[in-house]
Design a protein around this nucleic acid. Structure first.
Lengths: 257, 257
DNA sequence: CACAAAATGAACTAAATTGAATTATTTTAC
DNA sequence: GTAAAATAATTCAATTTAGTTCATTTTGTG
């Protein structure tokens, strides 16, 4: 009865994304299939790089050498991202022109900004779905080569448009935030575009990062932490960093909760 | 009492959009047709990139979990536009780099091109929904100010990116096509962007227009008919124009049916 | 009306999924 | 450290689903 493999695997993925560490035994009872079937499901998901297999179950993937598919990431920590979005929106003043790079966290910031009378310049194509006729902000999309995995554009073609704009704030999402290694992402084009945005920003550079990004180092460096003015994170991230240490680097810490 | 295939497939698509996963068995009972027919329906939808087939059913494409309401919206003459899209796709060769402007008809062309190994440069942001990991084309989105109404970008910022590209074909959708007034649209920025695309095209300029656009004159002129090499329209449009008259202007007429 | 094209379903073969039994491996307990 | 328990890998048979080919029905067109 009941479920086809695709459906079962989707539900398992949802469980993992909602924070749980799933166990083979447990899943076997929940779906009324043998442990063998569950094991094969998890192997299948692991082969696609969606989860990380462990003994007795599976967890969220921890290494980030390949760019995760956008929709997988968007489901991680939705509550925290929304809080970060709301907190970040309070830093924005009417009339601002803001660079925002791609990522699910920065998309939440854009969502929180929808009644602000500002100009948003972004390479996050999903911003277009938030900009409807009721949105108060003006949206300028950066052009360039479209990458399916991140729903964003980047590359050298992007720079000719960004080069025509000076913003007075930048909101930057990252895959890794480390005091030693700085801001890092798994895709070199994304790093280039983000760096170029930061260069063209005359005001504050605000980094938004959920707790699972803090202390992480991905493949390509965007800029060092010295370029950063403000870090907005969640309580998990706040516990991993000290306000004093950041203040010494000239970074203001904001914990969204 | 049957449903025509297109209708059934549309309902299946709706089910997938609301419930994420459908099963062949289940659908077979619901629509009172054999599992074989359902399988063929799902294959058909999968061939168009609308769903992802799995064992026992089909799921939403993982790369586009939030489809914009826009595509659900009942379009005018969806059948004719799809025919025009398919007919236009046959004019495109592997390796081509193509400018495509915005509009629902050109979006259908992009949909028909999803398995072509080409480079598409467009200001139609909805193209991002068609470009998923299975799409064969490379997508370059033009940047610029986003207009909610048309889901497109245009304006002076667009031109710096277009100015870096020479395409060997252009596919142009219009709001009005008239032998006297040329190509016209209701938005001046859109006219500018389209004109700039045509200027940067070294090969054929292909206009796609459903029959209801033929003989219509809108507010702003893009270019005159002398700039056009090919017109693709439906049977309604074909009846309103004579091949000979167009040939005298150097325009090839293609009627999609 | 005749004809071509598409849609549908039946019969059959191929492939994938599933679970049981068995053996190997890792983890846990002592 | 070793033994016991749990988890994983392997092989195999049963079941379900998918792919193929063909005949029948429906639809569209001149």
């Amino acid at each position: 009865m009941g479920l086809i493999p695709a459906d079962r695997q989707r539900q398992i993925l949802d469980l993992i994304h909602s924070g749980k560490v799933v166990q083979v035994q447990e899943l076997s009872e929940r779906f009324n299939v043998s442990v063998l079937t569950i094991r094969r499901d998890l192997d299948h998901l692991a082969a696609e790089g969606l989860v990380e297999r462990t003994h007795g179950g599976a967890t969220l993937r921890r290494t980030m050498s390949v760019e995760p598919a956008y929709t997988e990431k968007a489901l991680e920590f939705p509550g925290e991202k929304r809080l970060i979005g709301t907190a970040t929106a309070t830093l924005i003043a009417p009339g601002d022109t803001i660079f925002i790079n791609s990522g699910s966290t920065t998309l939440e910031v854009i969502r929180a900004l929808w009644k602000h009378e500002i100009t948003i310049v972004t390479n996050n194509i999903d911003a277009a779905w938030i900009a409807n006729e009721d949105a108060a902000f003006k949206l300028i999309l950066v052009g360039g080569a479209y990458r399916t995995r991140s729903h964003s554009v980047s590359g050298s073609l992007s720079e000719c448009l960004i080069g025509n704009i000076y913003a007075n704030k930048a909101i930057i999402g990252v895959d890794g935030f480390s005091l030693q290694a700085g801001l890092t992402t798994p895709v070199v084009e994304e790093a280039d575009t983000t760096r170029f945005m930061i260069e063209r920003t005359v005001g504050k550079v605000i980094v938004v990062a959920a707790g699972n990004k803090i202390g992480v180092v991905s493949n390509f460096r965007t800029v060092g932490v010295e370029e950063i003015d403000t870090l907005v994170t969640d309580s998990t991230g706040g516990n991993m960093l000290s306000s004093e240490e950041l203040a010494a680097l000239g970074i203001e810490l904001i914990v969204a909760e």
